[in-house]
């Protein structure tokens, strides 16, 4: 084993210094070869195993951790959030039928988003749906019960709330909700009602933050799952890089774990 393997160095840096950042800047083939040498089934598995080792080392070296009790008020908030996140799993047939109704994200990659640039792609998306389609917005969507965390964030100065534009894809045309983002806090939440469920083993949703002031490429906002289309979900935004001035938020469907560069399509867009 080459001890000066740059991929291994980068992976260790990623796991220890920025574990939430994903496997960015790593060559997939080199990473998989590294994982194979290490007896791991894939690069992402190898990374997670190293991250688990770091977590165990944290527990083994941290000051006493197990003798504290979470404040009761906080516990209540966490439980309330759980009610929004934890839902009985949809049946396989249910998921399968939904998938067939959704745009085939992975196989249909044609690179058009990458070719035009994200800002332009988002602008095109907005132009395509300039005529509102009220008939596709679900009138029966339940009144959302937003979490205390999101509510508190919306009350903070500088917080923006941006609604999702109606999607051009039928499966997503009825999705409602918004994006709440506070640039000072670098925090935000997605609110999605009527979002088709995904099978995390097949693909995951990924959020992108279009920030032309920062870069032509969008900022990875993290991957997430929707377990049930019947429930409104609240997803914390996990921006991998500091956001300067978000122009739009977009959701794609990607391979499990997400991608570094997406080829779209943009399933949903919220433009500021």
């Amino acid at each position: 084993m080459n001890t000066d393997n740059p991929t291994l160095d980068r992976l260790i840096e990623q796991v220890t210094e920025d574990p939430g950042g994903g496997l960015t800047g790593l060559d997939a083939a080199s990473l998989d070869a590294l994982a194979k040498d290490a007896g791991a089934t894939s690069g992402s598995t190898f990374a997670e195993e190293l991250e688990l080792a770091a977590a165990a080392a944290m527990l083994a070296t941290a000051p006493a951790l197990s003798n504290e009790t979470m404040p009761a008020g906080l516990r209540d908030k966490v439980l309330a959030q759980a009610a929004e996140c934890v839902r009985p799993s949809a049946s396989v047939t249910d998921l399968a039928s939904r998938r067939t109704a959704e745009p085939a994200a992975a196989p249909a990659r044609n690179g058009w988003v990458g070719g035009l640039g994200w800002a332009a792609a988002a602008a095109m998306f907005i132009a395509l749906i300039v005529q509102p389609r009220p008939e596709t917005v679900s009138p029966a969507a339940p009144v959302p019960v937003a979490s205390d965390v999101r509510d508190a964030l919306t009350q903070q100065p500088g917080t923006i709330t941006v609604p999702w534009a109606a999607s051009e894809f039928d499966a997503y045309a009825g999705v409602t909700g918004d994006v709440v983002w506070n640039n000072d806090e670098q925090r935000g939440y997605l609110r999605l009602a009527g979002m088709p469920a995904n099978d995390p083993s097949v693909r995951q949703y990924q959020l992108w933050i279009v920030d032309p002031d920062r870069d032509a490429e969008p900022v990875d906002g993290g991957v997430f799952d929707v377990l049930s289309a019947d429930a409104e979900v609240l997803i914390p935004i996990d921006a991998k890089l500091p956001v300067l001035s978000p122009a739009a938020f977009a959701i794609t469907a990607e391979q499990p774990g997400g991608v570094v560069v997406s080829e779209g399509p943009l399933l949903l867009v919220a433009a500021t």
Partner: peptide, 10 residues
């Protein structure tokens, strides 16, 4: 809960 709270506090 206690473990997560302890980690977060520190």
């Amino acid at each position: 809960g206690g473990l997560v709270w302890s980690l977060a506090r520190r």
